[in-house]
Design a protein around this nucleic acid. Sequence first.
DNA 1: GACCTTATGGTCGCGATGACCCGAACACGG
DNA 2: CCGTGTTCGGGTCATCGCGACCATAAGGTC
Lengths: 228, 228
Amino acid sequence: MADPVSLAVSTVIFALRPHPSTRLPVLWVPLVRRIRDPHQGKWALPGGPLGASEGLAASAGRTLRETTRLTPRYLEQLYAFGSLDRAPSAAERTVSVVYWALVRSEEADASLESVNVRWFVADELPELAFDHSLIVEYALWRLRNKVEYSRIAAAFLGEAFTLAELRAVHEAVLRRRLDPANFRRQMEASGRLVPTGEYRAGGRHRPAQLFRHDESIHLADNGPLTGL
Amino acid sequence: MADPVSLAVSTVIFALRPHPSTRLPVLWVPLVRRIRDPHQGKWALPGGPLGASEGLAASAGRTLRETTRLTPRYLEQLYAFGSLDRAPSAAERTVSVVYWALVRSEEADASLESVNVRWFVADELPELAFDHSLIVEYALWRLRNKVEYSRIAAAFLGEAFTLAELRAVHEAVLRRRLDPANFRRQMEASGRLVPTGEYRAGGRHRPAQLFRHDESIHLADNGPLTGL
DNA sequence: GACCTTATGGTCGCGATGACCCGAACACGG
DNA sequence: CCGTGTTCGGGTCATCGCGACCATAAGGTC
C-alpha cells in the first residue's frame, strides 16, 4: 500500500536589501508563484517533494539553489507542518518540513527573478498559499530571536567587516536602532569577534577597524544537533 | 508512483520519579523494545507511522497513550530527522517527526510496564536503536533549556503546589540545587504564580503557602506557533 | 519547652545593559 | 590649509537581575 501522506521540503530564504521606499536595509524573501491548483496564482515558499536519496537539509539547499542560484550561508530546520487542514480537503495530504536560510545581500542582488520567482519585503507580504504566511511569520520570529544570542548575523556579511556594518545587520533584522558604543562592547564581550588590525577608510569620518568572526565557533548553538 | 519515503512520528516522554539508588527525583523515559529487524531487541522511542487522517501532534499523543495509558500535560514538536544514514541501508527510508512530552509523576507510577515497555532513567539509557540516543539527548537539552525561561515545570505538578515542590521539579530537571529564597523571588517576579492563600502543613517545619499557575499564560511561548 | 527543619524575607556584590558624553581621526568645502 | 561634519572608539553612570548569604518565622518532634 502506498503511503497516503506525501512529504515536501520548503525553505524560507532571507536576504538583506534596501527597502524600495525608505532605502534602509530590510529582510527580503523570494517566493514562487503557484502555476496550478490548489491556490493557483498565489505566491508560495520555494520547495518540493523530498527526493528519495537526499537528506532533508540537502533538499532545502537544492530548492534554494534552484530558485535563487545562491548558496545558503546558514541553514536551519524550522518546523514540520502537518495539520489536516493546511490544504484544501480536495488536495493531497502533505507534511512539509520547512527550513530557513540566510544568503548574502550582494549575491541576492545578482540573483535572477522571473515572472514566477520574485523577491518580497518580508514584513509586507501578500497573502500566501496554504499556511505559508504563518510559516514566514514563525521564521521571522526565530530569526529575530536568534540574532540576539548567536552570531548568525555574520551570515549576511563577508569575511571582514566593520562594527558599523555588523550593527546595521542587527538593526535591519530587529527593526530598531542600537547604540553604537553599547553594541561594540556587547560584541567584544561575546568573544566571537577577532580584530584584523586593518582599517577601512573612505567615509567622511574616522576609519573603522575591520573584524572577522572566530570560525571555531558555530554560527548558532543548537545543542546536540549543532554538528548536523 | 508510491512515495519512496515513509513518515513516522515518535515521542520522547518525560516523567519525574525517584532514582533507584539515590531516591532523589530524576527524569525517566519510557522505551519500547523492538521486536523485529532492524535493531531487533534494542530499545527505541515509542512511535509509529503517521495515520492518514491524524495530525502530527495527534499521532504523538496517540502513541503516548498507547504505550503509557497517560495523557500528556505538555506536548511540543522537537525536530524532524531525515538523514539518509539513520537506519541500516537495507531498511526503508524513513523520516521521523519527533515530539517530546511531559506527564505527571504520580500517573507515571501507575502506568503499565511490560516485557516490551519499560521506563528508564533518562540520563542512564542503554544504547538505543537508530539515532534515538541522539534524539533523547536533544530532547533533554531542549527540556533543560526551556524549564529556565518558561513555566513548563508546572506540567509535572498538580493544580496547587508549594514553592518547594516547584523548586524540586526544577532541581530534578536541571540536576542542580537552587537557593530557596532566590527561587521564590524569581517565580514571584515572573508573574506566573497566583497565591491561593491556603497553606500546606504536615512537615516538621513551618507550613508553606500553596500556589497555582496563571492559566491565562501558556506553558511556553513559541511565538506565532503558540496556539497550535 | 528545647530544638530541628523548612518557609520567607532582607542585604550585598557583581555583571550585564542602556542612556549618555567626549575626544579622535578622517573627508570635504571653502 | 583650516573649519566643520561625520563616525569611531572609549568612558561614565544608574539600573536591574541574580547568586551568595544572613535572619527571623513557625511549624513538628521529643
